[in-house]
Amino acid sequence: MARVVLHIGTYKTGTTYLQTLCHLNRAQLAQAGVIYPPCGDGYAQHGLAALWLDVPDAVASAQQAGGAQALWQTLTDRYARAPGTLFLSSELFSHWGRSRIDLADLASRLSAFEDICLVYSLRQQADLAQSIWLQAAKFKSPRPIHRFVRKAFERRQIEDVRLDHASVHETLLGHFSHSQIKLVDYHQASRSPGGIGQTFLDLLDAGLDVSQLTPPPPESVNTSPAPLTYWVATQITRGQQQPSEKLIRLVHQALGLEQGQPTSLLARYEYQKFQSRFGPGNAALVARVQNTQPGFSFAEGSVPKGMMFRDDVTQAHWAEIAALLYNERAQEVSFLERLRKRWRLG
């Protein structure tokens, strides 16, 4: 039976890790009956989205493979009537910017396959918003946090990512059936045995254990930095440059954080507002999918124990940061003076 599984994201739900894992283990997946095809340059199938999106990643990937139309035709001709499972993954299929995926056209193209499964990964909205801010800060520039959060509530999306999972599901139902849509809770998947990788191997019926596969190298995984320490560090650099590892360590020390202590760049009331704003929609979504995904759950949960929020940073913390920076600078100056004196004596 020709089966296609299209993983559509969303962003910041372990997509880079999963795509790199599949890219590095194409041969083993193929032996297990799962085809993860190369589609242009890179480790994901971003080029397929270039048929509708003008996003640079999609366009560049498609151009290297002869264009998005050619990519789609090749996949259909080669795999639509072949045995096994074709696995495709690109968070660009959940992109919600000026250009958007034509879901009617997408459904038509996938209809060549006998069995269709769209996989959408959900992440708690407060954590998702925070992670997107960190991503933008790393690769673009830090956004003023108050304006960023206000826009998230007003538009119910951040950048090109929709925060309202219930609305995303409703949009997909306009072109795909309930049984064709599979929801994955990012938090539950990442904390389950084998994590995100094992969750998707099981979903694909690969019969593989993630421990059997070559893991992605750490530098290839798009991991977000520690939220609160990174935000504080960007306030010191004024967004003119990326905070150094040394500065981040000093901030971590000044905040008195313990190893592994959770932090949030959101204020406590903002975190709670995310829960109250999106909680009802999340609950309605869970109820809606129970017939096709019995036992599925997606709850905001309680605030992690010991979480430090942005509004927990006090004047005393800022004073400690200033003192540590002053001492660090004094030590550097002292070292340079000793070095100059040694050269003069020599």
Rank of each mutant, 00 (worst) to 15 (best):
Q180I: 01
C22Y: 14
E159W: 14
R100F: 02
F309W: 10
L172Q: 05
V221E: 05
G256I: 02
P243E: 06
G9H: 02
S244E: 11
S244H: 10
L325P: 04
P280A: 02
H7R: 01
L325K: 07
G239P: 08
V149E: 07
A49M: 00
G239C: 11
F87H: 05
A323K: 12
Q157H: 14
I196L: 13
H146D: 15
Q290M: 04
G195Q: 10
E114L: 03
L208W: 02
E328I: 00
Q315P: 08
D115N: 10
S108C: 13
L71M: 12
T13S: 06
P243Q: 09
D102K: 02
E170C: 09
A129M: 08
A70I: 01
S276E: 12
L71Q: 13
Q272S: 11
K12N: 07
D54C: 00
P38F: 12
S264G: 05
R156W: 07
Y230E: 13
H46F: 04
H252N: 14
L86Y: 01
G14W: 10
E320F: 08
D54I: 02
H46K: 06
S99L: 05
A137I: 09
G47Y: 04
T229Q: 09
V232F: 09
F139Q: 15
M308C: 14
G260D: 11
F139V: 14
K305Y: 09
R147C: 10
R78M: 07
I181S: 01
E159N: 14
G14E: 07
Q188H: 10
K341T: 09
Q31C: 10
V34W: 00
C39P: 06
L325G: 05
T199N: 08
F298K: 04
I8R: 02
Y269W: 13
N25A: 04
L103H: 04
H317I: 06
G260Y: 09
A112L: 06
L92D: 08
A82G: 04
L163E: 06
Q261G: 00
A126Y: 07
P38K: 11
L128Y: 08
G260W: 08
Q235L: 14
R329M: 12
Q130I: 09
Q45A: 07
D160Q: 13
G301Q: 07
H165M: 03
E154R: 14
L255W: 03
I101T: 12
T223E: 14
D115T: 11
E154M: 09
G14K: 09
Q124A: 11
T214R: 15
Q157P: 01
A50H: 06
V168G: 01
G9D: 00
G9S: 02
R344P: 03
T74M: 14
H169E: 01
R342Q: 14
L86V: 03
Y326R: 15
S167I: 00
K305R: 14
L51V: 04
I35E: 11
A126L: 06
A50P: 11
